[in-house]
Structures are given as C-alpha cells and as structure tokens.
Design a protein around this nucleic acid. Structure first.
Lengths: 144, 144
DNA sequence: TAGGCTTCTGATACTCAATAGCAAGAGTAG
DNA sequence: CTACTCTTGCTATTGAGTATCAGAAGCCTA
C-alpha cells in the first residue's frame, strides 16, 4: 500500500528503511508539488505529524537529495535553498527575476541531448534540472 | 580600461557604482572561472586586496546574482552554495553524483526552446542554467 | 509471530555562514 | 573641486543546519 509511491520504491531499492518520518516528509513534498524551503517543509511535516522532529526532516531531505529524489535550488534572492521534487529524474521551470514567480513546464526535449552527452563524455546521465531566468508578462507590463 | 570587462558594463548600465570591492570580487570570479563557494571567494578576494571586507563580498555576490551575472547553485552535499558565472546569461554542466566532479560544456542547443517558451508563455527570457546529474566514467569503472 | 540486530529517530545544544546596523569613506555628477 | 549619495568595513547578532546519544522502530530470520 505504501509501495504505490515511486519514491518509496527508490528508498527500498537503496536499502533504506521506510520509516514514519520519511513517509511524512515525502507526503509533505508530494502535497506541495512545488518549491518549498526547509522551514516550510518542517511546518508541513509538523501539521501532518507533530511527533516528527526537525532533525529528522533535515536528514530526510539530505537523504532524498543524495538519492536524486530532490534537488535544492536557490530562488528569490535568499540563500536558503528551496527543494524541488525531481519527478522521474528531471525538472524544468522559468523564474521571473523581478517578482520571483515560478512557472513549471514539463516538456524539455532534452532526451536527444542527454544521449549525445552520454556518448560524447562517456558517462551515464540520470536526470537534469533546467532553469530559465527572465521577466514575466505581468512584470513587463508593470515596468513599461 | 576597466570597461573591458562586460560585467563592469552591466553594473554601469544598471546605475551601480564601480567600486574597488566590486572590481576585486569580479576579478576573483573571473580568475576562478569555475564553481566557488563564498568562503573560497572571500579567500581569493583577501589575497587580491586585504582591505575588502567579508560583508562587501557577500553584498557583491548578492548584487551580481540580482543582475544575472552569477547564479548560486547546490553542489557536493554541502548546503553552502557554489557560485557560477553566467557568461552571456547561460551556463551548463554535468555533475557526478558520486565524486562530485563537474564537467562544463558550452553548446546547449536551447535557443530554439527559449524562443518557443517565450512565445508560448508570453515572457522574456534572459538566460538559463542547465545541470545534468549522472555518474562519470571513473566512478562507473570503480563501482563495477 | 517473536527475537535480535541495526538503522533511524527525537531532543537539545552548538556552530558558523550570512545578515543587520551604523559611522566613515569613496564614486560620481555638476 | 564640491557636495551628495551610495557603498564600505567593522562587529554583533541571527538562525539554518549539524552533532550527539540514548532510546525507538524497521526488518530479516526462523
């Protein structure tokens, strides 16, 4: 029943135990389906299950990052990272440099480039993060 | 003579003063041409000009990030960001998940996608960061 | 299903990168 | 050169993230 989540499967494949703390952190991340800072994730976890401690959240985030499930990224001028769920190993978004709005998109068309890089550099590629920086329509209108 | 650096030009265009501290930080970054943490940048700046203080380095890094000259990115298990120079607005690299070696590459072929996104989402795009995650040849050999 | 080994957890104290505040100094426009 | 304003350097402070460790909980075996 837990095995429905592909992330739980990844934990299992790596020989990591499926603990309550990890399950709750994963659920918080999936509910969010966005870009959350550690503080926001801790708050969400507290709401789901108050018994889970701060330290365990940080440990889970670190583990998930190591397994390629998550990727911390720096957004909105703050040096506190936001965590991004790498669904199926990849993630793509556009960030407005002015209002910091984030627009995610799915199709990246990077499969061909991935193959090409793998053969050219002689390595294996498991995933990628693609960020575009720009100015959104609203900010362009406001700035004009 | 300073105006040779395109980054100095960017500062000028945004009405920022060309101060000694900012010049030194830029020089440290250009000398490095790699991925440096703030601690490493501070050390490099100290070596170039000991009068420049820590706080000014952080302020310069923040300013350059805001202007799109730099991008903090998460590398190698530490939550202290590494700064990447966005030459001409974009940067691309492959990171080995095991030994954390970074391999930069230039051609990304993302111009077409950039155009497409601009028209589809109705926004202006100024740059991008593309990170691939995988396992390098050495680590694959060692792991086998 | 219970036993037993091992990993993981929760609580707290601690560390140190990053920031805030302010008086003094340096850029720049005229 | 002068004057105005932005920026700096110093230092105190903050707070996200980490270390520690006894106890709890997964999980494998039989």
């Amino acid at each position: 029943m837990d095995s429905q989540s592909p992330y739980i499967q990844i934990l299992r494949e790596h020989g990591c135990r499926i603990t309550q703390a990890r399950r709750v952190v994963l659920r918080a991340l999936e509910d969010a389906s966005g870009h959350y800072t550690s503080a926001q994730i801790i708050a969400a976890v507290q709401a789901l299950d108050p018994r889970v401690g701060r330290a365990s959240v940080f440990r889970a985030l670190e583990l998930f990052t190591r397994l390629g499930i998550l990727r911390p990224t720096y957004l909105s001028g703050s040096l506190t990272p936001a965590y991004v769920l790498m669904s199926d190993g990849h993630h793509h978004h556009v960030i407005c440099s002015q209002c910091q709005v984030i627009h995610e998109f799915d199709d990246c068309g990077l499969d061909a480039m991935t193959r090409q890089l793998e053969s050219r550099l002689n390595l294996r590629i498991d995933g990628h993060l693609l960020e575009f920086y720009g100015v959104c329509a609203d900010c362009q209108a406001a700035g004009a």
